[in-house]
Design a protein around this nucleic acid. Structure first.
Length: 543
RNA sequence: GGACCAGUGGUGUAGCGGUUAACAUGUCUCCCUGUCACGGAGAAGAUCGCGGGUUCGAUUCCCGUCUGGUCCGCCA
């Protein structure tokens, strides 16, 4: 059967007079009595059909699949919102190929349905242009990565999905084994160990579009089943590797959306990121840094009997109109779960500093405080404190984001990209035991090896995250390839020789056979797609 | 594991002690020759998520429960 001569979206003025056969879904019909228009949609776009005598064609409803023959003709008045808007197709014959029931959602650029209905009828949701564009964007991203890796001599290798559980990290998804009842395969949280084995196996440059599984709760930007662009190389220093990966990301943004990213990407140390933005994945589309408070405030906190171990401030310029009592109450409620007892606010209003907290500040110091805070009329300074620096940072970091949204400081068109580097090698858990901040195979920075024995908490790692618009879009590290250092790390992590052998023995053994220096990264394909498609919901970028 | 929010015609919302349960959109019927979110007239369509309680009376208040969402924990 002959289905069509053209796709709908490519017809233009130059085609006027052509006889065409088209196929598509009825997006909308406008029946004017003895004249009817139909918007006919296929993947390529929409073209308007014109039917001179609607009584001569079968009954048509939305989302019917129809095939028509007709003549392309010029429209008297063009529709500029349509790429085919200068022409229409005058229908000579019309055939219904398949009917549709009444629809549970509007199939159009903007739909009326909520998320659960869209997911229940995903096939209808996917007919909508924004959804098609998102998945095409995702496909283009993957293609851009493939061509970058091909150009740079990477080998695409597939690693197992039914694997041995490796300790640490997220909860594993488990698959029962048929041949060994009572035993289970784990689905990989990432191909981490496999890609390191590939380096030991001499591949030098590996990548994979890798499906990963983590049995943890969802978030708006987190799905238990997700895709990583997984990369590992040998014989590259961290700087060499990062600049190669920058090139990949620049290629992707350029070829997918025509966006030029800076060269090189800015870098921010973990320490600076935490101090200025309270998070290791700051949204840098706006600045709005956190600040240390003047000592006068610290003294006043002590006087007021407030927690004063760690205090931070956030200056919101021109915010007094937006920061109503109600919004501030919301903020107070919001920081409560973090253990922050209240927010102290200072406003500059009617020529002077105003705050209910000023009663704890000696009158003689008010003027100095006013000068130190340097608030202009309308500015607001929000202060909070906590015993734990990290908790305070987290809460203030989130308030920073809220403040930026409230004050409309976020430029949605901007792409703010940065490497966050110099992560600590270790965290400390509740029992005071050192735990790997990234994973136990992360290489310490070369000049800090001696600190491992004396002050391990201070040791920085050759680890890095790629942060785009406040999303962790990728993360990785250089790996340890020296088995003496590896043993030292395991010991610091409190693992006995026996535990090491039991948990990683088969992997560690590979390090006895000429392991090359190596390291890698994994980019989150879903998050990259979210950023490039401009959505904040991960479900939008997954079919 | 915890907190919060939401479940009302097909869809999206309003109503929050007594309503003929409202509006928009969709659906159906009729009219319409230049629409492009076509327009006009009319109609149908809802045991207000489920169970219990309070009350003379519950969609509305309370308790429980289920479902969905957001966040905290968690995500080396």
């Amino acid at each position: 059967m002959f289905y069509r001569s053209h796709v709908n979206g490519i017809l233009r003025l130059k085609d006027v007079g052509q006889k065409v056969t088209l196929i598509g879904w009825v997006q909308r019909k406008r029946n004017l009595g003895s004249l009817m228009f139909i918007d006919l949609r296929d993947r390529s776009g929409i073209v308007q059909l014109m039917i001179k005598d609607p009584t001569k064609v079968p009954d048509i409803k939305n989302e019917f699949l129809i095939q028509i023959q007709g003549i392309v003709s010029k429209k008297a008045v063009a529709n500029p919102s349509l790429s085919t808007g200068e022409i229409e197709v005058e229908v000579t014959t019309l055939k219904v190929l398949n009917e549709s029931d009444a629809l549970p959602l509007i199939v159009d650029d903007v739909t009326d349905a909520g998320e659960d209905i869209r997911l229940q009828y995903r096939y209808l949701d996917l007919r909508r242009r924004p959804m098609q564009e998102i998945l095409m964007t995702r496909s283009k991203i993957v293609q851009a990565f493939h061509s970058f890796f091909a150009k740079h001599d990477f080998t695409n290798v597939e690693t197992p999905l039914l694997t041995l559980s490796t300790p640490g990290g997220a909860r594993d998804f488990l698959v029962p084994s048929r041949l060994t009842p009572g035993s289970f395969y784990a689905l990989p949280q990432s191909p981490q160990i496999y890609k390191q084995l590939l380096m030991i196996g001499g591949f030098e440059r590996y990548y994979q579009i890798a499906r990963c599984f983590r049995d943890e709760d969802l978030r708006a930007d987190r799905q238990p089943d997700f895709t990583q662009i997984d990369v590992e190389t040998s014989f590259l220093s961290q700087d060499e590797f990062l600049s190669l990966m920058e090139e990949a990301i620049r290629d992707v943004f350029k070829s997918v959306k025509g966006i030029s990213l800076p060269q090189p990407f800015p870098r921010l140390s973990y320490e600076t990121a935490m101090a200025l933005y309270g998070t290791d994945k700051p949204d840098l589309r706006f600045d709005l840094p956190l600040s240390n408070v003047p000592n006068i405030i610290k003294v006043a906190y002590e006087k007021a009997g407030f927690e004063s171990a760690h205090i931070k401030g956030l200056k919101l310029a021109n915010a007094s109109n937006m920061l109503s009592r109600k919004v501030l109450d919301e903020w107070v409620t919001f920081v409560k779960p973090f253990g922050i007892k209240g927010l102290v606010t200072f406003k500059h209003d009617q020529g002077q500093l105003q705050s209910s907290f000023l009663k704890f500040v000696p009158p003689a110091s008010v003027e100095e405080l006013t000068r130190l805070l340097n608030l202009k009329p309308g500015d607001v300074y929000v202060v909070a404190s906590h015993t734990d620096m990290h908790v305070l940072n987290t809460a203030m970091g989130i308030l920073r984001t809220r403040g930026a949204k409230l004050l409309n400081l976020v430029d949605e068109k901007k792409v703010a990209i940065t490497w966050v580097t110099d992560f600590p090698l270790f965290d400390t858990n509740e029992e005071g035991q050192l735990v790997a901040a990234h994973h136990p195979f992360t290489r310490p920075q070369d000049d800090q090896l001696s600190l491992l024995k004396t002050q391990p908490k201070k040791v920085l790692a050759q680890a890095y995250d790629l942060v785009i618009n406040g999303y962790e879009a990728g993360g990785g590290s250089m790996r340890i390839y020296d088995k003496v250092i590896q043993k030292q790390i395991f010991a610091l992590l409190g693992m006995s020789e026996e535990t090491i052998q039991k948990k990683f023995g088969w992997f560690i053994q590979a390090f006895n056979y000429g392991t090359p220096p190596h390291g890698g990264i994994a980019f989150g394909l879903d998050r990259l797609t979210m950023i490039l498609a401009g959505t904040d919901n991960i479900k939008d970028v997954i079919a």
